[in-house]
């Protein structure tokens, strides 16, 4: 009998835990990257259809950006980005998977809070560790996540031909912006 009660209790707690699990997602997150060099043509692109998932209980975060969705002002730059640098037909996506450090769901409030995110990014078929600061806040059913970090093309085996290398910055600034809703 006692075993039965313990079993039922465990089951109940399990259910409670499962029910309290809050997952947030978006399909329309934004990533902007810029690799401009002063006095040369602006090298900047924006992707407004980035997917992201956030588990409020565990602080786990994942996002996926399709390379073809990055739009440049100059069409030729967009073609070169996809065909020569990112090889988008071979490596069509960039994926980030990570976890917030020293996280507990109580720390998230309506005022933006700084967290450290640790994880890995896969780009151009190469996976690298990535540690970055993120700002998170929550309003109603929406979780807002923003972050800024730098990436180096050479870390991901992306070769910039010497003809244009002086027109593209060595470090690329990436800023991400997600508004995730409860799913």
């Amino acid at each position: 009998m006692r075993h039965y009660i313990i079993f039922t209790l465990t089951l109940c707690i399990g259910f409670l835990g499962a029910k309290a699990q809050e997952k947030f997602s978006t399909k329309t997150g934004t990533i902007v990257f810029e690799a401009s060099v002063p006095s040369f043509e602006e090298v900047k692109a924006k992707n407004e259809s980035v997917s992201a998932l956030f588990n409020e209980n565990t602080g786990d975060f994942a996002s996926l950006a399709l390379m073809n969705a990055f739009r440049f002002k100059v069409a030729l730059m967009e073609e070169h980005f996809n065909e020569n640098y990112m090889e988008s037909s071979k490596f069509p996506k960039a994926v980030f998977k990570g976890t917030l450090k020293e996280y507990s769901s109580e720390k998230i409030s309506a005022t933006p809070q700084k967290f450290e995110m640790e994880g890995s990014i896969t780009l151009h078929g190469v996976t690298k560790a990535l540690r970055t600061e993120v700002m998170i806040h929550k309003k109603g059913n929406e979780v807002f996540v923003t972050s800024d970090f730098d990436l180096k093309p050479e870390d991901f085996n992306i070769e910039i031909p010497s003809v244009v290398s002086n027109k593209i910055a060595e470090t690329i600034n990436v800023s991400v912006n997600y508004i995730l809703t409860k799913s």
Binding site: S25, K27, S49, S51, A52, L53, A62, S63, L64, L66, M67, N68, A69, P92, K93, V95
Partner: peptide
């Protein structure tokens, strides 16, 4: 639209 790829995270194909 233009097909931009398969999104493993959501399990959908995307067009823009």
């Amino acid at each position: 639209g233009r097909c931009i790829g398969f999104d493993d995270l959501m399990g959908t194909v995307k067009l823009d």
